Deep mutational scan, measured.
Amino acid sequence: MSIQHFRVALIPFFAAFCLPVFAHPETLVKVKDAEDQLGARVGYIELDLNSGKILESFRPEERFPMMSTFKVLLCGAVLSRVDAGQEQLGRRIHYSQNDLVEYSPVTEKHLTDGMTVRELCSAAITMSDNTAANLLLTTIGGPKELTAFLHNMGDHVTRLDRWEPELNEAIPNDERDTTMPAAMATTLRKLLTGELLTLASRQQLIDWMEADKVAGPLLRSALPAGWFIADKSGAGERGSRGIIAALGPDGKPSRIVVIYTTGSQATMDERNRQIAEIGASLIKHW
């Protein structure tokens, strides 16, 4: 067993022997301040990774656009098919120029040779490549099948209805392509620590998230040296922004954090800054 596999296998073990965790309302004060600064709703939840206990939450059962955070769930569904012998990570998928959609920095470079399922998941999570996500959605049967996968996990809230990039439209009061912070946090925890996926697939999923290259201005910008984070960000229309993450000190994750916002007129930089400040408060009061 590799060191990384050992780390993920012992996530519940280490967490069980940690000192009790206590909620700190100071972080919620910052979440509410972010709402004021952005002029928009902000949803927040913080779960203990081992027990699933909610440590703090704000608007945990209000719907927010998922945006690209759905790509972690998508690759979880792909990995479940791999575990069941219905898919192979090494299978190569070929596609054409007509398949390319807006923001496809990886797939646009491989029109000639195609990409493997493993490479597509890596591109979808680490670079948020939209064509990679659409190609992977095709392998599982489309958005409705991802929703069905989530329902089978016990998540009857999260739903995907459309493809990239239309799913980022974020129309107010439109339930399409949305989740709730509580539902997303619980589902992410199941994917990373539950028995739904094999140990190898859980490790692969967290490795992809740990290698995320496009979430630097968010929670990662607030992390002290030595902290662990595996995350996936999302951005959408109407001032929408979000991030889902597993993080913790001492090089291992111990909490799940989900943050979503929508309806702001603020710039992307300002949305990023507010999420980073929430992260800084979380870490300060850990």
Rank of each mutant, 00 (worst) to 15 (best):
H24N: 08
V31M: 05
V31A: 03
V31K: 01
E35H: 14
L38M: 05
L38D: 05
A40Q: 09
R41Y: 06
G43M: 01
I45D: 03
L49N: 10
N50R: 06
S51M: 10
I54E: 09
I54K: 11
I54A: 08
L55I: 03
E56P: 01
E56G: 04
P60Y: 05
P60Q: 14
E61K: 06
E61V: 07
E62H: 02
E62F: 01
F64N: 01
M66P: 01
T69R: 00
T69E: 05
T69Q: 02
K71L: 00
L74I: 14
C75F: 00
C75W: 00
C75M: 10
G76P: 01
G76Y: 10
V78R: 01
R81G: 05
R81I: 06
D83R: 04
G85E: 09
Q88F: 13
R91F: 14
R92H: 12
H94W: 07
S96W: 09
N98E: 09
D99F: 02
L100C: 14
L100V: 08
L100Q: 14
V101Y: 05
E102D: 02
Y103D: 02
S104F: 09
S104H: 14
P105Y: 05
V106L: 15
H110V: 11
M115I: 05
M115A: 05
M115T: 05
R118S: 11
R118M: 05
L120D: 01
S122E: 09
A124M: 14
I125M: 04
M127Y: 05
D129G: 01
A132S: 12
A133M: 01
N134Q: 12
L135A: 07
L135E: 12
T138N: 14
T138F: 07
T138P: 09
T139I: 13
G141Y: 14
K144G: 03
L146D: 01
T147K: 04
A148P: 09
L150A: 07
N152S: 07
H156E: 10
T158M: 04
R159Y: 02
R159K: 09
R162G: 10
E164Q: 00
P165Q: 04
P165K: 13
P165E: 07
L167I: 03
L167D: 13
L167E: 11
N168H: 13
P172H: 05
N173Y: 14
R176M: 03
D177A: 02
T179Q: 00
A183V: 11
M184K: 01
A185P: 01
A185Y: 00
T186G: 12
T186L: 11
T187N: 03
L188Y: 07
K190W: 09
L191F: 02
L191P: 01
L197S: 09
L197W: 04
T198C: 14
R202N: 13
Q203H: 02
Q204F: 05
I206E: 08
I206Q: 10
E210K: 13
A211R: 14
D212L: 11
A215K: 11
A215W: 09
P217M: 07
L218D: 04
L219G: 08
L219T: 05
S221Q: 05
A222V: 11
P224I: 06
P224L: 07
A225K: 12
I229S: 09
A235P: 00
G236K: 01
G236V: 12
E237T: 13
S240Q: 13
G242C: 12
I243G: 01
I244R: 00
I244W: 00
G248L: 01
P249N: 15
D250V: 04
P253F: 04
R255F: 15
R255I: 12
I256W: 02
G263N: 10
S264N: 10
S264E: 07
S264W: 04
T267W: 05
T267I: 03
D269A: 05
R271C: 11
R273L: 12
Q274T: 06
Q274K: 04
I275N: 01
I275C: 11
K284N: 03
H285W: 10
H285N: 12
